[in-house]
């Protein structure tokens, strides 16, 4: 099987609010998927189900041919080591320097040698253009820089899957492009990636698949060209006409 992620009939509610409705989805190894949709459509929840930050009430989630929905806590921690996540609010460890942010988890959890981890971390920091900031604390960095460190931190775990949860939504307009540039570069890597984003230009550049989520249902599923230029669903057309009006 060449699917890295499989979701089978996943349903999830917060109280009476049904956020995901019977979603089935397969994501190919090393593919780049972008999830778009109006706010409240369940994009982030769908993403957070993949590393089980949210536990769906129904359905199965299979990562690299291993069902994770019923795993014990310890095994779930092991699975999460291979699923990186980049957050809207960066969430760098505030009491640790940039280098420590990158090196901590691989040494602690994957029991790797510090020397090797550090070498890799320096390479990733170079990749995101922050080699000169290794000893800075997160509070001394701009939002864009923090997010680039967060991307490097996720990469330094050598994940099989990378999840991006609206990585540019909390950034000043000027910093969005520096982060998108890095993400475009990172998207060349052989890692399965899923992006929840509102950056349509970025999506059409790097995605091999775009999902449009609306009210907990995948309303549109296709290549960027299919979804952006020939949407079939009424709600998708409406969404694009609204966001494109001002650009």
């Amino acid at each position: 099987m060449d699917n890295m992620i499989e979701m089978k009939n996943v349903s999830m509610s917060f109280g009476a609010l049904e956020v995901l409705k019977d979603i089935s989805l397969s994501i190919k190894r090393a593919s780049k998927t972008v999830i778009i949709g109006p706010s409240g459509s369940g994009k982030s929840t769908l993403l957070r189900c993949i590393n089980l930050f949210e536990r769906p009430q129904k359905g199965k989630i299979i990562i690299d041919n291993e069902e994770i929905t019923h795993l014990r806590h310890r095994d779930l921690c092991r699975i999460r080591q291979s699923i990186g996540m980049v957050f809207q609010a960066f969430n760098l460890y505030a009491h640790k320097t940039v280098l420590e942010n990158l090196c901590m988890a691989p040494v602690l959890l994957k029991k790797e040698k510090y020397k090797d981890v550090k070498e890799r971390a320096l390479m990733h920091l170079d990749q995101v253009g922050l080699s000169d900031k290794i000893d800075s604390y997160p509070s001394k960095l701009s939002g864009g820089q923090q997010q680039r460190v967060a991307i490097a931190r996720a990469l330094n775990m050598e994940p099989k899957i990378l999840l991006f949860d609206e990585p540019t939504s909390a950034l000043d307009p000027e910093m969005i492009s520096e982060v998108l540039n890095i993400m475009t570069k990172v998207a060349q890597e052989d890692i399965t990636m899923i992006f929840v984003t509102h950056e349509m230009g970025f999506a059409s550049n790097i995605a091999d698949r775009v999902l449009f989520l609306n009210e907990g249902i995948i309303a549109e599923d296709g290549t960027p060209d299919e979804v952006f230029n020939n949407p079939k669903n009424e709600r998708t057309k409406q969404f694009f006409s609204k966001i494109l009006k001002h650009t």
Binding site: R80, G84, A94, L108, M157
Partner: peptide
């Protein structure tokens, strides 16, 4: 978010508490 970052990297509750939350 500090908890979430720690969990996303595969830390357990106690590891996140000890290494990330308690020092802060």
């Amino acid at each position: 978010g500090q908890f979430e970052a720690a969990y996303s990297q595969g830390m357990s509750y106690l590891q996140a508490m000890y290494h990330i939350i308690l020092p802060q």
